[in-house]
Nucleic acid binder design. Sequence first.
DNA 1: CGCCAGGTGGGAT
DNA 2: ATCCCACATGGC
Length: 247
Amino acid sequence: MNTEHNTLLEIFRRLGKAYGYQGWWPLQTRAGSKGYNGEGYRLSPEVGGELSDEELLEVGVGAVLTQNTTWKNARTALIALRTRGLLNLDSLLRIETGELAEVIRSCGYYNQKAQKLVELARMLGRLPQAGDHRVDMRAELLRLWGIGPETADSILLYGFGEPHFVVDAYGKRIFTRAGLVVEGASYREVQDFCHHMLPSDAELFGEYHALLVRHAQQSCRTVPDCSGCPLRNVCAFGRGWEGRPKG
DNA sequence: CGCCAGGTGGGAT
DNA sequence: ATCCCACATGGC
């Protein structure tokens, strides 16, 4: 990593100061959790080591359900699955895909996502142990139909606790406006940049991604509201969009 | 009515 | 490689 004072760390500090601890990934099952998006949850090792197989599955299912959808809609579908006792490998592998689709209807793309959940469940079921690190888990995830780089990295980061920076539309938008990343940069380009500029720390990456989402929803929206933006002094957009660097 | 939301795969260029 | 599109509900 670049140990010099860097803007990426400065952005993390400012977002953290402005919004506070976000506490992803929210797990309904975690003791002390107030539920999805509650304040009580923290990733390991704070709350006790690796996630259980059940928790890992829940992270994976959540990551799929929230694809290009609000967490609110994904959460409704996740709760519907839990209520019906479907948040386990056996159930996901037994249920008819069409029936599964109906259960997760609220998160959109339900036909595709039902198939994606089955694919994920099959893969997890094939593993000797969920947390087996002998295999290249990222490659295994990317091999599945319906799991792309962001979903794979979300599962690796929030499920397995591995330091993979999760890049999404929000992160791209914020970093592009800040002038750190060129317009139209690929997933890999943005991720490589983050991996080079930040210490490789799963806790940091997890909280950073959550803060980016929060900031993008609150201030750095499609049409940005820069009033009171905590990044004003480090953002090219905030200093005047015309002055931003270009690729 | 329109646009957006914590993407991805498939097909065409 | 890169662009374009379908996939779909819920909120504003």
